[in-house]
Computed example of a mutant assay.
Amino acid sequence: MIAGLHHVALIVADLAAARRFYLDALGGRELAAHYRAERDSWKVDIGLPDGAQLELFTFPAAPPRPSRPEARGLRHLAFRVSRLDDMVLRMARFEVACEPIRIDEYTGARFTFCADPDGLPIEFYELP
Rank of each mutant, 00 (worst) to 15 (best):
H34D: 10
P49V: 04
E30C: 03
G47E: 10
D45M: 11
V81F: 12
D45R: 06
I2D: 08
F59H: 12
P49Y: 13
L10P: 03
E30G: 01
A61I: 03
E105G: 14
F79S: 12
A92M: 05
E95H: 14
D86K: 10
Q53P: 04
F124M: 13
L26C: 05
D86L: 15
H76Q: 09
F113H: 08
A13E: 07
A16R: 04
V88R: 12
A3L: 05
G119P: 00
P63T: 01
L120R: 12
E70C: 05
L56S: 12
A71P: 00
R72W: 10
A78D: 13
L15S: 09
R90V: 06
L89A: 15
G28A: 15
F59S: 02
D50Q: 10
V81I: 14
T112A: 10
P60Y: 01
R110V: 10
A25H: 00
S41L: 00
G4C: 12
L54H: 13
A25D: 02
L77G: 06
P63D: 00
A62H: 15
S82W: 13
G51Q: 06
T107S: 15
A61H: 08
V12M: 04
R83P: 01
L56N: 07
P100N: 08
M91F: 14
A109G: 10
L77V: 15
S82V: 15
L23Q: 09
D50R: 15
D50K: 12
G73V: 10
R80C: 11
G119R: 12
H6A: 11
D50T: 11
A109F: 09
P63W: 00
D116W: 05
F111Q: 07
F59M: 08
V44R: 09
G51F: 09
P100V: 14
D104C: 15
L120F: 10
I122D: 05
T58S: 11
P63A: 02
F111W: 14
F111R: 02
A78N: 02
F21L: 09
A9M: 11
R19Q: 13
I103G: 07
D50I: 13
F59L: 08
I2E: 12
D50W: 04
L23P: 08
L56K: 13
D14I: 06
G4M: 12
E95C: 03
D86N: 10
A37C: 00
P63N: 04
L23C: 05
A18C: 07
L5K: 04
F21Y: 02
F111E: 05
T107R: 01
G27L: 08
G73M: 04
A13Y: 02
P66V: 14
I101V: 15
L31C: 08
I103E: 15
P128D: 15
H7W: 06
I2V: 14
A33I: 01
G119F: 04
P49A: 14
P100D: 13
Y22D: 09
P121R: 15
F111H: 03
P117V: 03
C114S: 15
P69S: 09
P100F: 08
L120W: 08
L31W: 09
H34R: 05
L23G: 06
P63V: 01
L15G: 11
C114K: 05
